[in-house]
Design a protein around this nucleic acid. Structure first.
Ligand SMILES: [Mn+2]
Ligand SMILES: [Mn+2]
Ligand SMILES: [Zn+2]
Ligand SMILES: [Zn+2]
Lengths: 154, 154
DNA sequence: TGCATTATTGATAATAATTATCATTTTTAT
DNA sequence: ATAAAAATGATAATTATTATCAATAATGCA
């Protein structure tokens, strides 16, 4: 079986870690499902279908590891589950923000940013960094409200 | 004992709910500690000091209720605990965003927004609302990174 | 290719946060 | 004061996540 993105393999080897079957499978799940926001359970079930030997603990460990490495990012949308998606450090992953429906939990990604928006954000990050001596690595932006569906059935 | 903000009492009565001791105590904790981000446990311990009869379940129920009413807001900063703060629907609560240290968990509130920033945000919300038919109620904005303290000890 | 070393795994138990249950107590309107 | 209903607190039950540890698989080298 192909053992996933060579860049990731290299980074792992450099830190004395190994590219294992379980890790490759989980990475593939993320790579093959752009735009999804997976919980540990969801990853477990999908991985389990591919290799029924895989255990729950490994899923949690791998998610932690990949998050540490900056390959995936932890997200919480208020439904009590931690969710994960690939970061834009990975190729083909566009920068995006989220719309979260507080009624049904639906999450919409959007990627349309005006130049004005991008510039302003860069400026704000720079100012905050300096003012608070804070090394900003990324931002999480969610607009919370009521989605199309939930709005209608009122 | 004073039974808290009349506006909140009124809203509760209107929906057939009652302004109870426990609720008043918890509301007071929030009102008296602007800028804190309390977990259920923290609220429980403080409330317990004021009235040792108060129970854990009531704390959870009250936090849920107040969040439903839009008086407090749920926040998750990635430390596994759900936290709460008063919303700007309450008087004396300024609109603000968060800086979150991914190393030690420290959270900084900041309230300095330029007019440019505010205008742009209003515009973006409006455009998103229309494009995705999404009633936006509020937004959660966090800049994640490494705080002053954690940065130095590297 | 076979082997030794050691990171990783899977099964399982342990934690810890949150939710559900239900008899008892408060609140509120009369 | 009283009756009806909402709310509470003690406690058990769930549920997500972590820790443990013997067994397994990945890696570098002979
Ligand atoms: Mn997303
Ligand atoms: Mn805050
Ligand atoms: Zn919805
Ligand atoms: Zn820090």
């Amino acid at each position: 079986m192909r053992r996933g993105n060579p860049w990731i393999c290299k980074r792992m080897r450099e830190e004395g870690m190994r590219m294992t079957q379980a890790r490759a499978i989980i990475l593939n799940i993320f790579a093959g499902n752009q735009g999804e926001h997976f919980s540990a359970q969801e990853i477990f079930f999908i991985a389990h279908r591919i290799n029924p030997g895989i255990g729950f603990a490994t899923v949690y460990r791998t998610l932690d590891l990949l998050a540490q490495m900056g390959i995936i990012q932890k997200l919480e949308f208020g439904d009590g589950l931690t969710r994960y998606e690939m970061t834009e450090a990975m190729e083909n992953v566009p920068h995006h923000h989220h719309l979260v429906c507080t009624e049904c939990g639906k999450v919409i990604d959007y990627t349309e940013f005006t130049d004005e928006e991008k510039e302003l954000f860069a400026k704000v990050e720079k100012e905050l960094s300096e003012k608070y001596k804070f090394k900003i690595k990324n931002h999480i932006i969610q607009f919370c409200g009521i989605c199309n569906n939930c709005g209608e059935r009122r």
